[in-house]
Structures are given as structure tokens and as C-alpha cells.
Amino acid sequence: MSSGPVVPNDPSSMVPVERPAGTGAPGVPAAPAPAPGSRLVLGAPEISRALTRIAHEILERNHGGADIVLLGIPTRGLPLAVRLAERLAAVEPELVAADLVGSLDVTMYRDDLHKHPTRTIGATLLPPSGIDGRIVVLVDDVLYSGRTIRAALDAISDLGRPRAVQLAALVDRGHRELPIRPDYVGKNLPTSQSEKVRVLLTETDGEDGVFIAGRQGAETRQSAEIEESR
């Protein structure tokens, strides 16, 4: 996955103060190791804080959690939706976290199927209440071109007719190709298109972290971004 040249890690990111001791440097985590030269831009505490903030924003914007349904887009949108639901239920005790969450697979609605090797289809599971007349919050890890969300909107319209659809993304890296805008963002991350943003979550990858890897072209902007995130 490292198409860019291998560059030494930014020394500042080698000392990840926010990481629990013993997990090792960001370059050598467990299974899906981020490419050499990738930098940690969001650690576990920042991800947790961002999700807590998004949960409160969802409740504020919709005047409570009464009609909320969180639909996570597999693979990594789903655990994020589960975490958001837990936070919503923690704030509003009358909500049951498990009844808020669903999973929405968009593979069969994508517009780029014929440009890639065949994709594995994920599961679509709606909460028992369904989505008709509810406020659906789509949850994804990275918002990039917007094409995944376009596919998700098509998928939703085949499943029912929600009162409103909103969008939450852990990371918005820009470069939209469609007129799509998130309602809730964990972190705006200006990137160049040659860079790769990789989100790791404990549920799927054994650890939490957002990493960025790529060429040096946008380096100045990147370091500024990292400084700001600290």
C-alpha cells in the first residue's frame, strides 16, 4: 500500500504521548501495519473525544434521540456507529443502544464496480424500527470523493423513506467529486490526493488510530495539520 517513497517517520510522531504504553511505535502495530512513513494524526483519545462530541451534536441538532437511526457503512463505519449509539444511550438513558444501530452495505450501489476486482458484499441489517419516517445518520470512517455516500443514498431509498438523512464521518479529507457535505465531522484533514488516509479501529484492526501516508508534496501543510491536532 505504500506507493510513495519510504520516508523516515516524523520524530514528533514517534513519541505518541497519547498512546498507552506498551503498544509500540505507530509504525509497528499488530496486523494491518500502516505503511512505513505513515504518521499518526488521530490517536485513540482523540477518536474517542471526537465521537463523544459528534454524539452530542447529533442530539442537539435533532432535539433529542427519539427518531435517530445510526447506519454504519461496513467495514469501519459500523463499529463507529456502534460507539456513537453507546454514547447517545449514555446521554439519554431512555435510548437503547442496540436498537439505534444498523449496517448499510453499499457495494451493490457503487458506480465503480467494473473498475475494481470484485468486491465482497457486506451485510445490511436495519434496526427493528426500520427507517421509514426516522432520521437516519450515515456513519463512515473517511469522507473523500463522496461516491460512497451517493451509493448509500441510493441504497437507503430502496430500503425506505427516512424523514431526513444526515452524515457523520470520523475524518473528512476533502477532494469531493459530488455535491455532498457532512453534518458531523470528527476531524477535517486536508490532504493531497497522492496521500492515503488509513483508519484503524480496535474492533476491526486491534487498535485505534488514524494514519496518513504519502508523498512529501503536501508535507508542509501536513505537519501544520499535525501540530494543530496535538
Partner: peptide
């Protein structure tokens, strides 16, 4: 559904791709 040129060579990898999930950052 897939890229016809790619799917010929990746017949065996269809199942291995499943473990990483359909939408890796790479694909994105």
C-alpha cells in the same frame, strides 16, 4: 460486477480480500 481484466487474475484472491473488508483505504 468486477473489472473483467482484474477478475481473471484474482480469482483466488476474491476470498482473501474478504478478510480485509470490501473497502480498504487503498481502494478508497
Amino acid at each position: 460486477a468486477g473489472d473483467s481484466a482484474g477478475s481473471a487474475s484474482t480469482a483466488g484472491s476474491a476470498s482473501t480480500a474478504g478478510s480485509a473488508g470490501p473497502r480498504t483505504a487503498d481502494e478508497r
